[in-house]
Simulated assay, not measured.
Amino acid sequence: MQELIGTGVALVTPFNKDKSVDFEGLKRLVNYQIDNGINYLVILGTTGEPATLTSEEKELVKATIIKENNGRLPLVIGVGGNNTMAIVEELKSTDLSDYCAILSVSPYYNKPTQEGIYQHFKAVSEASPLPIILYNVPSRTGVNVLPSTVIRISNDFKNIVAIKEAAGDIIQVQRLIQNKPADFMIISGDDMIALPLVLAGGVGVISVIGQGLPKDFSKMIQYGLKGNVTEANAIHYKVMDSIDYIFEEGNPAGIKALLKTLNICSENVRLPLVNASYDLQEKINTFAANY
């Protein structure tokens, strides 16, 4: 799974003022990533607002990205949820031939035990024709997938090849790296600790800020992978404030505010999310002007 080394980005779904999907903006976004050094694209992750897209819209978003990408970068598709059997059925019935891997979030809202999480991913593993990236994001799911559970899963299901770790806990990351199988990959799901994670032995990041600052963010990760700490840290400290800003009022409102400033797409999100406030947009504008 060399495709997963480096910087992936969790693409937003651009919306027009009337909240319809902005497919031209989506094409611009894809090309912006390709032109600026991103290594792979993640489609319909949390940042893409799939919870508020219709089934038809999801298919159109996927088709648009696949066509615009035209085989230039590897693609990862988000297939996850809190209904295990529905995820199994989706994996069995969906054409996944354009993707290199599945990103599958730990079940949210239901708050399963660690054994429930293990059994969920066992079912997902058995159903998936593609390698799987487990996604741990306890701030959204309500339950942390403990390192012991991740290690158990990684040892038992060989098509679960990586974890997108977004607990924001560098000690948890180090426990994973210490005890994981040699070929299991640790990917940051938290932009602020992406570089520390890579320097600790991780393979990269699935980023949000990366789609707004793709050239520098991907360069930072490459420096980190090569052990060029001074150069990597210089970029990390340069982009730190922007990471705070884009998550200040939630994701993806913040990154869409930055993408608006960059003339990639509008700032619009769908309810129950709301657009970034005027004050936050001004902070992001000022950051971009001085970057």
Rank of each mutant, 00 (worst) to 15 (best):
V9I: 15
N70G: 11
D22R: 11
G224H: 02
P129E: 13
G37D: 10
D95A: 11
L197P: 09
V21N: 12
I255K: 12
N39W: 03
N16S: 05
L134Q: 08
N110F: 00
T261D: 14
E57P: 02
I102V: 03
Y223F: 15
Y32M: 08
G201D: 08
N251E: 07
L259H: 06
L195Q: 10
M220P: 04
P131A: 11
I255M: 10
I153F: 04
K122P: 01
L271W: 08
A63K: 14
L134F: 12
G204N: 06
A257P: 11
V205K: 03
G78I: 04
P252T: 11
K164Y: 01
I206T: 03
T47G: 06
N268E: 15
P252M: 08
L75K: 05
P138E: 09
S55C: 01
G142P: 02
E49H: 09
I206L: 00
V143F: 02
G227F: 09
Q119V: 12
L273R: 04
G8W: 04
K122V: 07
G210H: 04
G168Y: 09
L199H: 12
Y237Q: 13
L29E: 11
M192L: 14
D35N: 15
T286V: 12
K111E: 11
A51H: 04
L280M: 13
Q178P: 00
R28F: 12
L91C: 02
A51R: 06
E90Y: 01
S97Q: 01
F184V: 02
F23C: 09
V137M: 07
Q119N: 13
Y245R: 04
K122L: 05
K67E: 15
Q119S: 08
V198Q: 05
S20N: 15
Y32Q: 00
